[in-house]
Design a binder for these strands. Structure first.
Lengths: 237, 237
DNA sequence: TAGATTGTTAATCGATTAACAATC
DNA sequence: TAGATTGTTAATCGATTAACAATC
């Protein structure tokens, strides 16, 4: 691990040099600071790498090459190397990538090195199902609160969490420092919930409702719409 | 509607002419046949258009321009026109697109003009939640069978469907002409289920399990992995 | 050392956007 | 007719892939 520490320093230095990366340059307090424009496609692949690397780690695999990763994940090895190179020099020429080290690096890129608290709105079947993902999310992320509009559900428990009324949402967000929310309510209730989340300071939303949410542009919405996925699958029949 | 019929004929003719479309040409039985290479990005946007157009239809809106669609969906109007133009001439210069007509056209492009039967494997909370999407899928698609490995669940009912054992999968696929399947089982069971689905002749899979499925290349997998969506959201914090 | 594999540049490929003639 | 809007070409932008020097 000693040589990896050295490498870490090298990275820091490297980030200040300009690179082929198309990111713009921004002047801050008189300095030219590199803003490495990372594409959405890259960010979407990072969790894919992380998931597979975690498998390798569980199997006690020490190192892995971009070639091997590419074969396992159906991706071009050059693309994998380039993706990772956006964030630093994590590999060793002639050797490949040290699995444990790369896992930590990707976690830190995704800001998963500290626990990220998440809340869930909607305690129906879908909400129940999503609560169980805490096991998969491991220590990096955690669903820490559940809300529902139905008075009959308030106070009941799901996986150790008490279902709370929406009125408590803003307070809980502040108390538990929550920044990400999951919407698992019917389509016709989703926009109102989203407005409430935004007002409470949420900046990332995973939306399961089959509807287009309108949010301010500083808020990011990822859609996980079953109907849309099924519809696009049908095209390829 | 009369003029739309004429337009339909025009389209058919049009598809045989070469266009700027980058699709390759393939020789079949001595004829040059256009194989319009439609990009994945286009196919993923079609259900977005359809969902919004269905809303307009419900509100009795007659026509809509690419400009209006673009504003509502946060897309460039030129992109919307180009997407639709991949499949024919659906609009009218100076007017826009007739909502009802366009809905039918997109449905037919997505092969949703006839009911598409879907099966679901996994009768946990997630499976329950997904069964309820039948309401949103309307008449175009329908989850028509549910399977589970747990003997205690076999025979119980979810939304009018009896939970079946996996042993019956192949037969049901044949009987009900099912081509698309949804995997809603734990990660460690997903690959075995996928193998079984592929063996039964399924060609499209919507996978909710947080794992990389390995399938033959004629089978299409869409991942709907909550953990990956949450992880990539975290990046933008 | 010889073989392997990275990081990175250059080449390619594809997707998005702008612009505009055609026309409703 | 004048204004609006499509379908489509051309221009731009960005992402993927190939290739290779550097080096473990």
């Amino acid at each position: 691990m000693g040589s990896q520490e050295q490498k870490a320093q090298k990275e820091t230095a490297r980030r200040k040099r300009p690179s082929q990366n198309s990111g713009g340059k921004v002047r801050r307090r008189g300095q030219k600071v590199k803003v490495p424009k990372i594409s959405e496609a890259v960010v979407r692949r990072l969790p894919v790498y992380l998931r597979y690397l975690n498998n390798l780690k569980a199997m006690n695999v020490r190192t892995v090459s971009s070639q091997q990763l590419g074969e396992a994940l159906d991706l071009n090895p050059a693309q994998i190397r380039k993706d990772l190179a956006c964030f630093g020099e994590f590999g060793r020429k002639g050797i490949g990538y040290e699995v444990n080290y790369l896992v930590e690096k990707i976690k830190s890129i995704l800001k998963l090195d500290k626990q990220v608290n998440v809340l869930l709105v909607g305690a129906g079947h879908l909400g129940h199902a999503i609560s169980n993902y805490n096991a998969y999310l491991k220590d990096s992320m955690r669903i820490v609160a559940i809300f529902d509009a139905d008075p009959h559900k308030i106070g009941k428990k799901i996986v150790n969490m008490m279902i709370q009324p929406l009125e408590e949402l803003a307070n809980t967000v502040k108390e538990k420092n929550i920044r990400i929310a999951i919407i698992a309510v019917p389509a016709d209730a989703a926009q109102a919930v989203a407005d409430r989340l935004v007002a409470a300071g949420i900046t990332g939303i995973l939306n399961f409702a089959p509807t287009n949410l309108r949010v301010p542009e500083n808020v990011r919405v990822h859609d996980a719409d079953v109907t849309m996925e099924l519809h696009s699958l049908a095209y390829y029949l």
